[in-house]
Design a protein around this nucleic acid. Structure first.
Lengths: 229, 229
DNA sequence: GTGAAATGTTTTGGGAATCAAACACTACGC
DNA sequence: GCGTAGTGTTTGATTCCCAAAACATTTCAC
C-alpha cells in the first residue's frame, strides 16, 4: 500500500529481524536490542510502530515475523549491506570490522546504480589479475598519504563544480581584468563551459561570466567545494 | 573543549553555512533553509542551538559567521563530500546529480581510511590509462546488469561472512551427513577456515562444524547476509 | 521619511527515537 | 503446582527535528 520511504532506523530494525529470524532462537526482543545497541524498551516501542505500519506480525510476548512485503524490503537492505561491505573489503582493502560499520551507515544512503558500479568494478579487477595485484601492492604501500579537500589549478576543475579561489598567480592586463571581475582569494568560482578543443574556458564568478585561456586558468589555484552551480 | 561527535544534521548546517558564507550574499537564514530544504523557522532554531554549542557567532537578524573551530569542522565535512563525489563521478561514472545526493548522505558515514583508499584508487587508475579506458568501456556497456543481494556457491563465500543456504545439490552419503548436520535451505551458514591449499574447507552451521571438499561446497547455493560470524 | 513587501523569528505543537525505572509475563527447576 | 529468575512491556521524560502561523524586523520604492 504505502510506498513511503522507510527511515534508516526502520531499515535497521527490519534488517536485524530478518537476520535473527534465520537463527534457531528466532528474533527475540532482547537479541534485537543487543544487535542494535539500544534498550529492550526501545525495541518494544519500535516493534509496536512497525506492526502499525503493517511490516510485521507480532503480539506482546509472542514471536516476531516479517510480512512478505517487509521481508522483501529487509532482503533489499541486507543486499545493499553485503554489496557495500564486499566492495569496501575486497576492493578498497578496508579491515572487516571497519567495513562492517561503514557499510552499516552507508547502506541507507546508496542507490542501485552505485551498487551496480561497485560490483562491476569488482568484476573488472577480478578479470585483470596483474592489475589487481598492482593495485593491492599500491594500496599496501601507501599509508596515510592523502587527506580529502581537493586543491588544483582552475584548469583541472571539472565543469559545474564549485570551488574557492586560493591564489591568483597571473601578471599583466589579465590580472587587472580578473581582479575587476572579482577573481580574488576567497571568491567562489566555477567552470561553465569548455570549448571543444579544451581552450578557452568559460568561467563564472560572483555572477559574472568571463573567458580565459587554459594556461591562464592553470595559474589560479582553487579548492573544491560541495555543490553544483 | 568538547570533542563530542557532531550529529549529521549539525554537520549539514555547518557545511551549508560555510558554502554560503563564500557567496557575496553571505549565509542568510532563508538561503540556508532553501539549501537544506527545510523551513526558515527550523533554521532559526538550529542557529540558536549551534550558537549555544559555540559553533558560530550570530545575533537575530544579523549575519552568521562560523567560529574558527567550526570552520575547521565544516571544511572537513566539505572535504569528505568533495572526495566522495569525485570518486562517484570519476571512478564509478555516476551522473553528477545522483553523485551529489549520494555523497551528501555518505559524507556522514565514512571514515578517513575509506576516503584515502578511494583517492588512491583514483590515482591508480589515472596512472594506468589503458586500464582506465578499459574500465570506462566496461562501465559504459554494462547497464542495469546486476542487482545487489549476492548469491554464489558456498565455495565462493569468503571466510567469516554469514549466508543462508538456498539449495543443496549433492547426492549420496554426503547429502545424508549434510542434512543431519542441518545444512538445509534456510539454514544460516559460514565458512570458518580454508585449508592452506584451498581444500577442504571448514564450515559452521547451526552451531556445528563440519568439513567438506571445495567441489562439494560448490553445489551448495547460498545467499550472502550482513554480519560477521 | 513612510509604508508595503520581503525576510527573519517566536510560539506552539507534533512525531520519532531513545532511556530508566516500574511493572507484567513466561518458563523452568524443584 | 509454585515461585523465582529471566525476559518483555509500559510509563514518563528527554532530545532532536520539523512545520504552520503569528509576530517582528529590515529593506526598498516612492
Amino acid at each position: 500500500m504505502k510506498v513511503e520511504r522507510l527511515s534508516s532506523k526502520t531499515e535497521d530494525y527490519l534488517e536485524t529481524i530478518l537476520q535473527l529470524s534465520e537463527t534457531p532462537r528466532g528474533a527475540r526482543t532482547g537479541d534485537i536490542a543487543d544487535a542494535l545497541k539500544v534498550q529492550p524498551s526501545t525495541v518494544s516501542a519500535a516493534l509496536k510502530s512497525l506492526k502499525d505500519q503493517g511490516l510485521l506480525h507480532y503480539e506482546p510476548y509472542g514471536a516476531v515475523t516479517l510480512t512478505p512485503e517487509a521481508r522483501r524490503l529487509a532482503e533489499d537492505v541486507a543486499g545493499r549491506h553485503v554489496a557495500l561491505r564486499r566492495f569496501l573489503t575486497e576492493i578498497l582493502g578496508i579491515p572487516p570490522e571497519e567495513a562492517e560499520v561503514v557499510a552499516c551507515g552507508m547502506e541507507h544512503e546508496t542507490t542501485p546504480l552505485v551498487l551496480e558500479r561497485m560490483a562491476l568494478l569488482g568484476d573488472f579487477l577480478k578479470d585483470h589479475s596483474q592489475l589487481r595485484t598492482a593495485w593491492e601492492a599500491k594500496r599496501a604501500t601507501a599509508r596515510g598519504l592523502r587527506a580529502p579537500g581537493v586543491e588544483s589549478g582552475l584548469d583541472e576543475l571539472p565543469k559545474g563544480i564549485r570551488a574557492v579561489v586560493l591564489s591568483v598567480d597571473v601578471q599583466g592586463p589579465l590580472r587587472k581584468r580578473l581582479v575587476e571581475m572579482g577573481v580574488t582569494p576567497g571568491a567562489l568560482i566555477a567552470v561553465e563551459r569548455v570549448a571543444p578543443l579544451g581552450d578557452p574556458i568559460a568561467v563564472e564568478v560572483r555572477g559574472y561570466r568571463l573567458s580565459m585561456r587554459k594556461a591562464e586558468a592553470a595559474r589560479i589555484r582553487v579548492k573544491w567545494r560541495p555543490g553544483l552551480i
